[in-house]
Amino acid sequence: MKFEHLIEINNFDDPRTDILDRKQLWHGLLLRAKEPTLFIPHMDSFEIVEESDHAISRILNFGKFRVNDKVEFVPMQKLSFYIPAQGEIIESKLEISIDEPFPGRFFVRFIYEDSAPDEGAEAMYNDFRRSAYKETDIDSIRLIRQFAAQGRLNGPATDTDMPLSS
């Protein structure tokens, strides 16, 4: 299955929309990787097991269910999430990138990809997953906007530092 969608960040035609700069948007997206419990309410906890300037390896805990993944990032541009096959989980990827077709006009592109067939009984399940992914992403952008409005994404001078404490 492959699924891709865009969320508009700065709509200059809508005065009700708060405008985010690239740094705020980037720090919010990076926060989704480094503090996933802020974005996934049913996640019990997480652990960062390895961290470098451009990647982190994590263990995500959902009660008795655990997921190992790795997140690589190109600062101020994109995050790539990799979940290797493990137990009943198939290998999957998520890429989140910042698109800027015009100066200051940001969109966030989400690309989900896995090896699940997109036919037969799986097709209905994949439709459900697509809908859930999109709602999660919309909610993530809503949270990023909220954190930005609170001034919590204006912080560090380096791209890999996190503006919020756990």
Results as ranks from 00 to 15, higher is better:
residue 1 M to W: 08
residue 1 M to G: 11
residue 2 K to G: 05
residue 3 F to Y: 15
residue 4 E to P: 00
residue 5 H to D: 14
residue 8 E to V: 09
residue 15 P to A: 09
residue 15 P to W: 04
residue 16 R to S: 13
residue 21 D to V: 01
residue 22 R to C: 07
residue 23 K to I: 14
residue 23 K to T: 14
residue 24 Q to R: 11
residue 27 H to I: 07
residue 27 H to A: 11
residue 27 H to W: 12
residue 30 L to I: 03
residue 31 L to W: 07
residue 32 R to Y: 09
residue 33 A to V: 08
residue 33 A to Y: 08
residue 35 E to C: 14
residue 35 E to H: 15
residue 39 F to T: 06
residue 41 P to Q: 08
residue 43 M to S: 06
residue 45 S to F: 11
residue 45 S to C: 05
residue 46 F to Y: 14
residue 46 F to D: 06
residue 47 E to A: 13
residue 47 E to K: 13
residue 50 E to K: 15
residue 51 E to R: 13
residue 53 D to W: 08
residue 54 H to E: 15
residue 55 A to M: 15
residue 55 A to D: 10
residue 57 S to D: 12
residue 57 S to E: 14
residue 57 S to K: 15
residue 59 I to W: 12
residue 60 L to G: 03
residue 62 F to W: 02
residue 63 G to N: 01
residue 63 G to Q: 01
residue 65 F to N: 00
residue 66 R to A: 07
residue 67 V to G: 04
residue 68 N to T: 14
residue 68 N to E: 14
residue 70 K to Y: 07
residue 70 K to A: 11
residue 72 E to C: 03
residue 73 F to D: 06
residue 74 V to W: 07
residue 74 V to E: 12
residue 74 V to H: 08
residue 77 Q to S: 11
residue 78 K to Y: 04
residue 78 K to R: 11
residue 78 K to Q: 13
residue 80 S to V: 15
residue 81 F to K: 10
residue 82 Y to P: 00
residue 82 Y to A: 06
residue 83 I to C: 09
residue 83 I to M: 08
residue 84 P to L: 03
residue 85 A to P: 05
residue 86 Q to Y: 06
residue 87 G to E: 00
residue 89 I to T: 05
residue 89 I to D: 00
residue 92 S to N: 12
residue 92 S to V: 09
residue 93 K to D: 11
residue 94 L to Q: 13
residue 96 I to L: 08
residue 97 S to F: 05
residue 100 E to S: 03
residue 104 G to K: 00
residue 106 F to L: 02
residue 106 F to I: 00
residue 106 F to Y: 14
residue 107 F to T: 01
residue 108 V to H: 03
residue 112 Y to A: 06
residue 113 E to C: 04
residue 115 S to G: 14
residue 115 S to P: 07
residue 116 A to R: 14
residue 118 D to I: 02
residue 118 D to F: 04
residue 119 E to L: 15
residue 120 G to D: 03
residue 120 G to P: 07
residue 121 A to V: 12
residue 122 E to A: 15
residue 123 A to K: 15
residue 124 M to Y: 09
residue 126 N to G: 04
residue 126 N to D: 09
residue 126 N to Q: 12
residue 128 F to Y: 10
residue 128 F to K: 09
residue 129 R to G: 00
residue 130 R to C: 04
residue 131 S to H: 10
residue 134 K to Y: 08
residue 135 E to L: 11
residue 137 D to R: 03
residue 138 I to S: 11
residue 139 D to M: 08
residue 139 D to G: 09
residue 140 S to V: 05
residue 140 S to F: 06
residue 141 I to E: 05
residue 143 L to N: 01
residue 143 L to Y: 04
residue 144 I to Q: 02
residue 144 I to Y: 02
residue 144 I to S: 03
residue 144 I to N: 01
residue 144 I to E: 01
residue 145 R to T: 02
residue 146 Q to G: 09
residue 147 F to M: 08
residue 148 A to E: 03
residue 152 R to T: 01
residue 153 L to F: 02
residue 153 L to A: 02
residue 156 P to K: 13
residue 157 A to E: 15
residue 157 A to K: 14
residue 159 D to P: 07
residue 160 T to C: 12
residue 162 M to S: 15
residue 162 M to F: 13
residue 163 P to E: 09
residue 163 P to Y: 06
